[in-house]
């Protein structure tokens, strides 16, 4: 068996507004459109997935927050209706996904081997979180590639940013080892918004783009600074600045997906491709790709 490989990693944020605006048949609410630049960014990312032909998509989502360790979806098929508890007016989505349980178990075992607390989620009635579903829909709406779903352990909040980020980087290392042993071609999806400052009231028409802009100029400037470093392939510098980014831009990357992904990829110095950037209720969202070859 050939050695498995991470063929690409994507920053793939999960505002449910993007699914809502696209009007897919799985989602009940109907929209007039909205957030087109971000949706077009995802169109480009979808083309990359088509080219890469991965065997599996691994997604780390901040909206499955776990208190005791890092959890992995461990049921071969999960389906149901996901109603977003925060935006139920926008996201009521019939999901049906196939889990690569074998790889999930391998990731879990490697994580335990590296000293993390890790668990397999085996309850067949588990309702998959909207962050995982949104990211997966936006990157591959056909739902024809098995997935590994990973929770966001709350260590960056419970402990310190440095300690929590360290755990996520260890989780990334475990993920890489498991993928290499699996022989599979894998794509990583970091389901994160960048600057997470947002408005506190929703417009009467949620997709009214005349109301959409960065909520915080300071947060926006942080996002641009970090995106520019990523475009230059300077991930080590991004991670050096990571705690300040988290603190000053209230960046959702704190929840762990981003450090998990870049650690799994080995902090590559290849320039990231920015497929697009836009705001959703004022938060900063970038769709970005690191193509690792193969």
């Amino acid at each position: 068996m050939a050695q498995g490989k991470i063929v690409a990693g994507f920053v793939a944020p999960h505002p449910p507004h993007l699914v809502y605006a696209e009007n897919p048949p799985q989602n009940e609410p109907r929209a007039e459109g909205g957030w087109e630049p971000l949706r077009w960014a995802y169109e480009r990312a979808r083309k990359s997935i088509e080219e890469l032909k991965p065997d599996v998509l691994l997604v780390h989502s901040p909206h499955w927050q776990t208190l005791v360790g890092h959890h992995f979806l461990g049921v071969p098929r999960l389906s149901g209706k996901s109603v977003d508890p925060i935006f139920p007016n926008l996201f009521r989505y019939d999901f049906d996904l196939t889990v690569d349980v074998e790889l999930a178990e391998a990731c879990c075992a490697e994580a335990e081997g590296l000293g993390l607390t890790a668990k397999m989620m085996r309850n067949p009635n588990f309702r998959v979180d909207y962050g995982t579903i949104t990211t997966l829909h936006m990157i591959r709406p056909q739902w024809d590639i098995p997935v590994v779903g990973i929770s966001a352990n709350n260590s960056p909040y419970y402990l310190s940013v440095d300690e929590g980020t360290g755990q996520m980087e260890t989780l990334g290392e475990a993920t890489r080892i498991a993928i290499e042993k699996s022989g599979k071609r894998a794509v990583l999806l970091a389901s994160n918004t960048f600057s997470h400052y947002h408005f506190h009231e929703e417009p009467d028409t949620p997709e009214d783009m005349s109301k959409e802009h960065p909520q915080s100029y300071h947060g926006y400037k942080w996002d641009m600074r970090m995106i520019e470093l990523m475009r230059k392939g300077r991930l080590r510098e991004v991670m050096r600045l990571f705690p300040d980014w988290v603190e000053e831009a209230f960046a959702e990357v704190k929840s762990g997906a981003f450090p998990w992904m870049v650690s799994a990829m080995g902090y590559p110095d290849v320039p990231a491709e920015l497929h697009g950037y836009g705001t959703v209720i004022g938060t900063g969202n970038a769709v970005m790709e690191w193509r690792l070859g193969g």
Partner: peptide, 13 residues
């Protein structure tokens, strides 16, 4: 309906 807690799913529904 049935509700499964995102943390404590192993203890029941």
């Amino acid at each position: 309906g049935l509700h499964v807690d995102e943390n404590w799913y192993e203890y029941g529904e």
